[in-house]
């Protein structure tokens, strides 16, 4: 490519300014591409040189925080995890993730997803209320038990799976791949005793029954979490439970107090975090 100068691509961006725009509009800016440049780098360049008011959400730049999920060339991806070179072509089309509301420009409103996520109690639930409020020590878990949910625990809640799901495209009552995947992550954790409490929500119309295995969520997940797998395993667990064939097991017990080597430096448990109930 000697003599042709640096390669340039066109960033085609879907802009939307609440209060001003009635409809989203498309804007194009040409920027130079440097080796290894990600779509997120390109957005920074556009903001710096052409469109200072351009808004998006990003933080870690390394595929960990889950902030920069966007619809890039028609596919939900993390902007920081996608190199311009791997997309091919001279146009990079970027829009906010669909199936969510748009706050501004490339910023999706993930609020509804997080509300559903919270409703499904994505944390360890213990049978003993005192233990739930004031955990005494760690709970025992074998490596085999860890592997039953580890894959699902890599979820970074970026929302790419929700943007790809055909059911979420029309049905706001469906919980969607992320919250369901995370409910299954805790349901299959041997330290958790919350299956019956989550079952109340999961057995209803917003539960995994709305999934028909189009498989798109798992195709686009940037962390290999495979929500489609979690949802199918969840259906099996719930049906086996309906048929009264599910073996009930108590959550893993609290580990024995270590003896021989006294724990030093922990005179008293840390102060309680204030809760909504006070």
């Amino acid at each position: 490519m000697a003599g042709t100068g640096p390669r340039r691509v066109t960033f085609r961006l879907r802009r939307f300014e609440p209060g001003t725009d009635r409809e989203p509009r498309w804007e194009e800016h040409r920027v130079e591409v440097s080796p290894g440049m990600t779509v997120l780098d390109g957005l920074w360049k556009v903001k710096e040189l052409h469109a200072p008011s351009l808004a998006w959400r990003s933080s870690c730049r390394m595929g960990i925080c889950g902030s920069c999920g966007m619809l890039i060339n028609g596919r939900p991806r993390l902007a920081c995890n996608t190199q311009v070179a791997e997309l091919g072509g001279d146009v990079v089309t970027v829009a906010a993730l669909p199936n969510f509301g748009t706050v501004k420009d490339l910023v999706p409103d993930l609020g509804s997803m997080f509300e559903t996520h919270r409703d499904l109690m994505p944390y360890l639930l213990r049978d003993d209320p005192a233990e739930q409020d004031d955990p005494t020590r760690e709970y025992r878990q074998t490596p085999g038990e860890l592997e039953r949910y580890l894959q699902f625990s890599y979820c970074i809640k970026c929302g790419c799976c929700m943007a790809a799901c055909p059911t979420v495209a029309t049905d706001p009552h469906y919980a969607g791949p992320m919250p369901l995947g995370q409910a299954q992550r805790y349901n299959s954790d041997s330290r958790d005793g919350g299956f019956r409490r989550r079952r109340e929500t999961l057995s209803g119309g917003g539960g995994p029954w709305r999934c028909h295995f189009a498989g798109e969520c798992s195709q686009v997940c940037p962390k290999g979490v495979d929500p489609a797998k979690a949802i199918q395993l969840m259906k099996r667990d719930l049906v086996v439970d309906l048929l009264r064939l599910r073996r009930r097991r108590p959550p893993a017990p609290v580990a024995d107090e270590p003896h021989g080597t006294p724990r030093e430096g922990i005179a008293a448990p840390p102060p309680r975090t204030a809760t909504a109930e006070g």
Binding site: S203, G204, G207, W209, V239, L242, L243
Partner: peptide
């Protein structure tokens, strides 16, 4: 009938 039961049927 809840959706879980309906789906199983």
């Amino acid at each position: 009938m809840r959706d879980r039961t309906a789906w199983t049927w």
